[in-house]
Design a protein around this nucleic acid. Structure first.
Lengths: 209, 209
DNA sequence: AAATAAATCCCCCTAAAAGGGGTATAATTT
DNA sequence: AAATTATACCCCTTTTAGGGGGATTTATTT
């Protein structure tokens, strides 16, 4: 009979980690490592014939890094799930990876055997994440409680960040365009900026909006 | 000696579920239910004396719903973790809850005993989520692959969504402002809109940006 | 009761931006 | 060969943005 094991490809430049994951996966009943590569550049020409169900991808790779490899992987193998395995846990890296198509994200300090569960989970359409990643992701949705902006100013700036102009904002908030203007002036003063783009940037960077 | 168990409050209008969770929690070694309420409106005046470490919150509640209760809860008890427990798994509801300060999010079809792990996890600063929620959250970061916009148009629209004007965009992309204008015209035409705000709205709704 | 903060509204001004209409060329990709 | 993409320019009018100024009302807090 044909094996129904999940086909796994590992792209990771650290030999020890690569062998560790491979050992674990090959000793699990549900998965088998069909190939390992030390960089995306080495992997890309073989992936089509490897036909992986799941790719374990490191971020810090020689040549093309994992973040940049993701869109290419997704284009090459649209139905393959990609789980990122990395030491990076900065919000920027995590969100970037997810935006680029990562289906799961684990930091390497995560208990090793969890990767087996993660493979199961991702093939069932889940989005496996380690605890600290989940925290980062959740925190990325949350606003800063110490915003200098008032409730109304925050509302105005959010509408502004949706590309709306003064009159559209005025209409939506049932106030005059002149009032909107005043709010904007106060926002600029509080954020120490003097343009729409800067106000949105500063507010986003600080999660005021 | 003083108990070090985590103090849990349940806000849930379904008696059966409430009792089920309470039973599980009270039989775990690490947590104890200090109070249960059938609505946020009933809960709010008692929460200060309940001093919960974790609140399990339903979304569909009589009176103030869970989404709206979240900011109020966070204001009242800034150091209390809130785990949302609900049948709602629409992207909108989930992201709304997270934006409003939820520290975890579980749908009720999740294995019941997982809530004990979730309480542990959230108190350790994690962001526990059920599989389908994690999937939704991860998907919320991902772009639609079927965008009608070209790469360049997408770039332009993203910069636009950052509040940048034509000249700022031109500078950033090393092209002329007139070229930016052409891209914008083509974007409008493809998205069938004729304003900045509408183009950003449509593109976001469809995850083109 | 007084002070502060927040939200509302109005005036002036100028430069820039937005949006709609065209057209055109070089490079890619199909 | 044909289509797509990215680039750039022209015309035009209306609107917006940002900087100045000042004022009123309503909450909230002290």
């Amino acid at each position: 009979m044909t094996s129904t094991k999940f086909r796994i490809v590992i792209i990771e430049d650290d030999h020890t980690l690569r062998d560790g994951y491979a050992y674990l996966i090959n000793n699990s009943p549900s998965s088998v490592v069909v190939a390992s590569y030390c960089s995306f550049d080495h992997a890309k020409n073989n992936l089509s014939k490897d036909r992986p169900d799941v790719i374990l991808l490191d971020i810090q790779l020689p040549g093309t890094n994992g973040i940049d490899a993701l869109p290419a992987l997704k284009k090459l193998l649209p139905d393959t799930y990609v789980i990122v395995l990395t030491v990076y846990e900065s919000e920027k890296t995590i969100l970037h990876a997810l935006a680029n198509g990562a289906n799961g994200y684990f930091t390497k300090n995560n208990p090793f055997p969890k990767i087996i569960d993660a493979i199961q989970e991702v093939t069932q359409g889940g989005g496996p994440m380690s605890i600290n990643v989940a925290r980062t992701v959740i925190m990325s949705f949350q606003r800063n409680q110490n915003s200098p902006l008032t409730k109304r100013e925050t509302e105005v700036l959010i509408l502004r960040s949706q590309g709306k102009d003064r009159s559209q904002i005025a209409e939506e908030l049932f106030i005059e365009t002149e009032t909107v203007k005043t709010h904007i002036k106060n926002i600029y003063s509080k954020l120490n900026v003097n343009s729409r783009a800067d106000s949105i940037r500063v507010a986003r960077e600080n999660k005021f909006i």
